[in-house]
């Protein structure tokens, strides 16, 4: 099932306090690409992947969008369904969603429009080999 809005509000709400892996505290709207990269570096077992948006479609679930990514060096195809207000962090750009207006309305979080070709930050488990 898709991720529902009820899972979203608190940590994407403007002003939400985020703890980086270094222990540093930042507001969600102040996060920068380097904060995620550095956090992954000091986290055991997690790695940052570059996930490029290759397609954005309407979902079969009303009120959702289906996002298609190619992920990491392997260029694996991964699809997820999210509400259009769900923010993703785009490298060098910051928070972006399919519906920046709705994100601003619900979370007061300033967002760019997420587009095909954007490279988002995602995480996966670090390979043990």
């Amino acid at each position: 099932p898709p991720i529902t809005s009820s899972h979203l509000p608190s940590h994407f709400m403007k002003g939400a306090i985020i703890q980086l892996a270094t222990g540093e505290l930042k507001r969600v709207e102040d996060l920068q690409t380097q904060d995620f990269v550095r956090s992954a570096e000091v986290s055991g077992g997690l790695k940052i992947d570059s996930s490029t948006v290759v397609d954005i479609q309407e979902s079969q679930w009303p009120g959702f969008v289906m996002l298609h990514f190619v992920v990491g060096e392997q260029q694996s195809k991964v699809s997820i369904e999210v509400p259009p207000e769900h923010p993703f962090f785009v490298y060098g750009q910051g928070w972006s969603s399919c519906s920046p207006g709705r994100t601003a309305q619900l979370f007061s979080l300033p967002c760019h429009r997420l587009q095909v070709g954007d490279v988002c930050i995602s995480i996966s488990l670090q390979s043990l080999n």
Binding site: V28, S39, V71, G72, V78, F88
Partner: peptide, 25 residues
């Protein structure tokens, strides 16, 4: 005087999607 209030703190990794491709057999 303002009483200190507890504030929720969220871990950084809760903000980014976990996009792990399913492993081929």
């Amino acid at each position: 005087n303002v009483e200190p209030r507890s504030v929720a703190v969220f871990p950084w990794h809760s903000l980014v999607p976990f996009l792990a491709p399913s492993q081929p057999d």
